[in-house]
């Protein structure tokens, strides 16, 4: 305790914070199109079912190289989406139940396969898939001051996870800006998109590939629980704050960043203030995102509970006066 309320140590905190923020922003931006298409739970399903993809990729190749892991997880993600569609359409099963069936079977398979991997004395851990290992991204010979960061050696020190996540944010931004028009039409009116000659189904799968990619890029550092939270919460919050899609996308990115920075600082600083050890940052970021959403539900300028109440009272007064 050095008296400061907010604890921040460049060596221990900078990279975890960056990783969390990049993961949150990437997922938050993509989440807009899931929330609008009522596919929020697809993120949930995919992030559960990448587990067997990761393990199978690992069992086949015996390496943990990012490319292999990515391929395995992306394949599992796509398989999930295809299977959910199949079960839904061919089996005439309700969408929610179809998702539940597919992802829980995938997850169970993953847990079982991890046991097989563990038999070979290899450390693959379901826990880190769930809640991540942000805390391990420590920069041991970090400079003491912020000005010390402005050197080339800083770039060399950036861990792979952070670089991958940064890349994911860039890719997500590029994807959304290139396909903004298509995504918008597909989000609001897939039938119109088809009649206009866009391939709405193709768009759907492309979006799902990005969601799977974001999940994979994030899982190692931040865990799938933050992925699920960030795919839904920032977009939902932004949706309550604005009626325009472009504004919603921008706002959701900001909210994702705010909740991850806020969540991270809360995870390290609040326990420290009571003399305790830091808690799980990914969980704390999710809670922060939920808190911001709750705030938006209550106090959003047009769609909030308070403004709705005020509007009704005003209307009641106006009617009475008339």
């Amino acid at each position: 305790m050095n008296g400061a309320i907010i604890q921040f140590d460049i060596g221990a905190d900078l990279f975890p914070l960056l990783a969390g923020t990049f993961a949150a922003m990437g997922c938050g931006l993509l989440g807009n199109f899931l929330v609008l298409r009522r596919l929020s739970l697809m993120g949930d399903a995919i992030s559960h079912s990448v587990l067997p993809g990761l393990v199978i990729a690992f069992l086949i190749t015996s390496t943990r190289s990012p490319a292999v892991m990515f391929a395995g997880a992306a394949a599992a993600g796509i398989a999930t989406v295809v299977l959910v569609e199949l079960v839904k359409n061919l089996g005439r099963v309700e969408p929610g139940a179809a998702m539940g069936v597919v992802f829980s079977v995938f997850f169970a398979l993953g847990v079982l396969l991890i046991e097989r991997a563990a038999m070979r004395h290899i450390d693959l851990d379901a826990d880190c898939v769930l809640h991540g290992q942000l805390e391990t991204l420590v920069w041991y010979d970090a400079p003491d001051t912020l000005s010390g960061l402005l050197t080339w050696s800083t770039i060399d020190a950036v861990p792979r996870q952070v670089a991958v996540l940064a890349m994911m944010v860039v890719l997500a931004v590029m994807f959304i800006s290139v396909f903004f028009k298509e995504l918008r039409i597909a989000a609001f009116d897939p039938a119109l998109a088809t009649t206009l000659g866009f391939n709405a189904t193709g768009m759907h799968y492309l979006l799902m590939v990005f969601v799977a990619a974001a999940t994979v890029a994030s899982f190692e550092a931040v865990g799938s629980i933050l992925v699920i939270a960030m795919l839904v919460c920032p977009a939902a919050t932004a949706r309550l704050l604005t009626d325009r899609l472009l504004a919603q996308v921008v706002v959701s990115g900001v909210i994702a960043a705010v909740s991850s920075v806020g969540g991270y600082l809360a995870a390290t600083s609040i326990p420290a203030a009571f003399g305790k050890d830091a808690v799980n940052a990914a969980g704390s970021m999710s809670v922060m995102a939920g808190g911001l959403l709750a705030l938006a539900i209550i106090a959003a300028p047009r769609h909030g509970v308070i403004s709705g109440w005020v509007r009704r009272r005003r209307l009641a007064c106006a009617i009475t006066v008339d």
């Binding site: 929330v35 009522r38 596919l39 929020s40 739970l41 993120g43 949930d44 929610g96 769930l130 809640h131 865990g223 629980i225 933050l226 699920i228 939270a229 795919l231 839904v232 919460c233 977009a235 939902a236 949706r239 309550l240 995870a267 808690v279 799980n280 990914a282 969980g283 704390s284 970021m285 999710s286 809670v287 995102a289 939920g290 959403l293 539900i297 769609h303 509970v305």
Partner: peptide, 25 residues
């Protein structure tokens, strides 16, 4: 709010679970 059911489920699921992870850690 005007959020749909899937979003509400995703929100509660992830935020509560996140809180649980915080508690566990």
């Amino acid at each position: 709010s005007r959020l749909t059911e899937d979003a509400a489920i995703g929100i509660v699921l992830s935020v509560f679970f996140g809180a649980g992870i915080v508690g566990l850690s």
